[in-house]
């Protein structure tokens, strides 16, 4: 009985993981394919990686994407933290539910709509005040900030609700004015949430295709846009190589973050255990 059950569990796990990772695995394998035909194996080669490095268009797009992602992440963390802080700490002000809903709306809004509305806004603004001049890196960055900051706000808010508010009150009580309390007490305590918010914003910006397509202009194609336009002309092993590199970078980041967090968790648990054992 139990054996049958464990067989069932095992096969579910295998099937689930296969479903998730076989496509990625096949992509990685075929990136080392000698042949130009993606589906026919013709021996091992790293030549597509060489091609990739020589491809100006892809490199330029990657550089644009990274710049956008970086600026976006910084702004999103700054704005999202302020929004999350006011959601968590201003108590029950008038229209709080509305505000919460509005901050989190971009999370569920279809990207097409977000993209389209931003495009319309940018066009209208250009007509009215002459800024932003045309569409390009600036407009993509602004568009990304609008949805990234919603994620940061939610992360910061949920982190703050688990921080005892009396810690901030204690700092006030000891003579620190509110702004100082925010920078000296609140921010350091929620720093891990800010870091994960930053990383999330960064990756989401790197990933985004739909919104960027709406608000980009000539000479500002991001990496996903270039990849997508190339794939429409047929999948080349070059793209496989690019995808493999991206998977590698992302996996390294995720695993590194995981290890750091786990170590912190372990050390904390050990410290608490020791303190309790001393029981002085």
């Amino acid at each position: 009985m139990t054996q049958r059950r464990s067989m069932f569990l095992l096969s579910s796990v295998v099937f689930g993981f296969a479903f998730l990772y076989v496509p990625i695995l096949s992509l990685i394998i075929f990136s080392f394919n000698e042949s130009k035909l993606v589906t026919v194996w013709a021996g091992f080669s790293t030549k597509w990686y060489g091609e990739l490095i020589r491809n100006e268009q892809i490199l330029e797009a990657a550089w644009i994407s990274i710049r956008i992602a970086f600026v976006n992440a910084c702004f999103a963390v700054a704005l999202g933290t302020l929004a999350g802080f006011s959601l968590a700490r201003f108590g029950r002000f008038r229209g709080r539910t509305l505000f919460t809903g509005m901050v989190t709306a971009p999370l569920v809004m279809p990207e097409v709509i977000t993209g389209l509305s931003l495009l319309l806004l940018f066009v209208a603004m250009q007509d009215l005040i002459g800024w932003p001049e045309g569409r390009g890196v600036t407009t993509i960055t602004i568009a990304h900030i609008t949805f990234s900051m919603a994620y940061v706000a939610v992360i910061v808010q949920s982190r703050l609700t688990s921080v005892d508010e009396s810690v901030e009150e204690a700092a006030l009580d000891l003579g620190a004015p509110p702004a100082k309390v925010f920078f000296v007490i609140t921010l350091p305590i929620i720093a891990p949430a800010l870091i994960s918010g930053w990383l999330l914003s960064f990756t989401m910006s790197l990933d985004d295709l739909v919104i960027a397509s709406f608000v980009s202009g000539p000479g500002s194609s991001t990496l996903p846009m270039v990849v997508f336009s190339k794939v429409r002309l047929g999948v080349s092993p070059e793209i496989n190589a690019l995808a493999t590199i991206i998977v590698l970078v992302v996996a390294t980041g995720v695993i590194a973050a995981g290890i750091v967090m786990r170590n912190q968790e372990l050390r904390r648990a050990r410290d608490e255990h020791m303190a309790a054992a001393e029981n002085l």
Binding site: D164, V167, E169, A170, L172, D173, L174, P177, P188
Partner: peptide, 20 residues
């Protein structure tokens, strides 16, 4: 008069120590 200008200090029931 805000807490940081009052001539009183408080010890909190939950201790409220600065964890960092």
């Amino acid at each position: 008069i805000p807490p940081y200008d009052r001539p009183a200090n408080m010890m909190f029931q939950s201790y409220a120590l600065f964890p960092h």
